[in-house]
Nucleic acid binder design. Structure first.
Length: 591
DNA sequence: CCCCCCCC
């Protein structure tokens, strides 16, 4: 095969003069592992590359950790992402290099087996080494000369150029950035098979861009107090590594790690030109299409907020607090924001505010997407930014009336579809196995008083029914233990009816307590002494009407398929919503 | 070098 024509002949001269040529094809004529001071780094290569006409020996490439490809002699590669940049070498000489962020192996070296063409070496003199072509990207913004008296003969002692964050890369060592900390995590400990330690990270911005900086172990302690949110710092001598986009959506190809040589110095004359937060918002319709685990920035209106829910995790036995917020935006998409712990408790905004989230995680459960803040996320209510005002205006003008496509349908908030019991029974024939949610406006007809409460295991995380040994002890089969006491719990079976017919439904403690306005303990104790009063209490609830949100699922009992319906929430009916549903139904009937 | 972030 004649491969003489496959290289992008002459392209290196253009690239090394600042041009960006899409996907140049080059040949590897040599490679050498780079060694840098005190940083163990076997994956950085300095490459000798040829375009068939010219060759350069100043191409740098960080081999991705999972790369299977070997860049052996004579390989032919295609550059996917790259740029040329001026760096200062150890001998303080400026030189222009080609930095390759991503490449594709086209032909393995052994199949090519020779040098293509007769390339001549392009030397430094043939391409410019002034910073001008780089700085033009940041139009007179954060490239400033930082002059300072030499106080301690230290790093900032002589005249230095402040580098834009966007220009940082692993091949450029003598940089200083002037950046604002816009977000900082707390110190977190980890322990896994590879070891243990602690860390924190913070996000840094300047006018050119943003980057994450992480400090590990003793450096976490050293720098935690030195770096504070909203403050501006001069930072230098961190290690740059390719970004892991699974956990960081900052717009940068690299992230930084502090080293023992890292210098941090607060900039006391706070530079107002340095922005506060760089958002990169994704609209909710796009969020819905992304895979679980992705980190995104979103801005949306809180259409509704659930009650605080508290429960115990079955897998970890931990007590959890949760609140669900329905987020909507102009893409007519609704998505559930799940808040946990402190975030859930402190979120008390029922006035439909705008919220912005930086670095929130997309979660996926049975195909339904939700969003949740994670370590390193930044949640703001009514942020003072143009996007927030735009959204506010849209929602107040017409967003309120829009019907949203809720992509977190299987949560207790948002658009749970209306169905009558009869419709739900029919729907369950095809969809009952995986379960579904619906809502209906129904009347309580009958509560089974005798079995409304049961004696449960006193261990909070168990809840299993105990056996009364009738000697003052109660046995839990699940815990395989006997206890001197038990705890009453609700398991209420109720017959309710809507316009289509009646249905037996189950209520657990939270909802039963709401309807009966008594705790399971109170009812249980009353049952022991005064069954009549309990009967009366249940009579009072009879014929009361609620909007029932129900989870329906086909379950098998002794080889028999049975449709089980669990009430997940009861609330007073809003006739506005119910009427809108009825009108829609009537219009459907009229065709 | 973390990357867990909880529930159905």
């Amino acid at each position: 095969m004649n491969r003489d024509c496959i290289l992008s002949e002459g392209v290196l001269e253009k690239i090394m003069n600042g041009a960006t040529i899409p996907y140049p094809v080059l040949q590897v004529l040599g490679s050498k592992k780079m060694v840098s001071n005190n940083i163990k780094d076997s994956e950085r290569l300095r490459l000798l590359l040829s375009d068939g006409k010219y060759k350069i020996n100043v191409a740098m490439f960080t081999v991705p950790a999972n790369s299977q490809d070997a860049l052996e002699l004579y390989s032919v590669i295609k550059l996917i992402r790259y740029f040329s940049n001026v760096i200062r070498s150890k001998d303080k000489r400026d030189m222009r290099v080609l930095i390759i962020l991503e490449l594709e192996l086209i032909y393995e070296g052994r199949t090519v087996g020779r040098t293509i063409g007769d390339p001549t070496t392009l030397t430094d003199n043939e391409f410019p080494t002034s910073q001008s072509s780089d700085s033009s990207n940041f139009a007179g913004s954060s490239i400033t000369l930082y002059r300072r008296k030499n106080e301690n003969g230290d790093l900032f002692g002589d005249t230095k150029t402040i580098s834009p964050i966007a220009s940082l890369n692993p091949f450029h060592n003598n940089w200083i950035i002037k950046a604002r900390v816009i977000n900082k995590t707390s110190i977190r400990h980890w322990c896994n098979s590879r070891g243990e330690g602690k860390l924190f990270s913070c996000d840094l911005v300047d006018r050119s861009g943003e980057i994450r900086c992480t400090a590990f172990k003793e450096l976490a302690d050293k720098f935690y107090e030195c770096l504070n949110v909203d403050k501006v710092y001069y930072i230098s001598r961190c290690l740059l590594q390719p970004i892991n986009r699974q956990f960081c959506n900052l717009k940068h190809d690299f992230e930084m790690t502090t080293t023992p040589e890292t210098q941090v110095e607060e900039c006391l004359d706070d530079d107002l030109l340095i922005p506060k937060v760089n958002y990169n918002f994704t609209t909710l319709d796009k969020v819905a299409a992304m895979v679980g685990g992705t980190i995104v920035d979103v801005i949306a209106v809180c259409k509704s907020v659930s009650e605080l829910q508290t429960f115990t995790s079955k897998s970890t036995n931990r007590d959890l607090k949760k609140k669900e917020v329905l987020l909507v935006d102009q893409s007519k998409t609704g998505i559930c924001l799940t808040l946990w712990g402190m975030n859930a408790e402190s979120f008390n905004h029922s006035d439909q505010p705008v919220v912005s989230l930086k670095n929130a995680k997309i979660c996926e459960f049975r195909g339904n997407k939700t969003i949740t803040p994670v370590m390193g996320s930044l949640l703001k209510v009514n942020p003072d930014i143009p996007d927030a005002y735009k959204l506010r205006k849209w929602f107040d003008l017409d967003g309120n009336q829009v019907e949203f496509n809720n992509v977190s349908a299987k949560t207790t908030i948002g658009n749970v579809p209306w169905m009558t019991f009869k419709e739900a029974q029919r729907y369950s024939q095809d969809h009952g196995d995986q379960g579904f949610y619906f809502q209906t406006y129904a009347t309580i007809l009958l509560i089974r008083v005798d079995r409304a409460v049961y004696k449960s295991c006193p261990t909070p995380e168990c809840q299993k029914k105990v056996i009364d040994l009738e000697n003052g002890m109660y046995r839990c089969e699940k815990c395989n233990r006997e206890y001197p006491e038990f705890k009453y719990r609700f398991l209420v079976s109720m017959n309710v009816s809507d316009m289509s017919g009646s249905q037996w439904v189950t209520l657990f403690s939270a909802e039963a307590e709401k309807i009966l306005a008594k705790t399971a303990q109170e009812i249980g104790e009353a049952m022991e002494h005064d069954q009549e009063s309990v009967g009366k209490l249940f009579d009072e609830v009879q014929f009361k009407q609620f909007l029932f949100k129900i989870r329906a699922k086909m379950e098998s009992y002794n080889d028999e398929q049975k449709l089980r319906m669990i009430v997940v929430s009861t609330s007073p009916i809003t006739f506005e919503d119910h009427n809108a549903y009825l009108i829609k139904k009537i219009e459907e009937l009229r065709g």
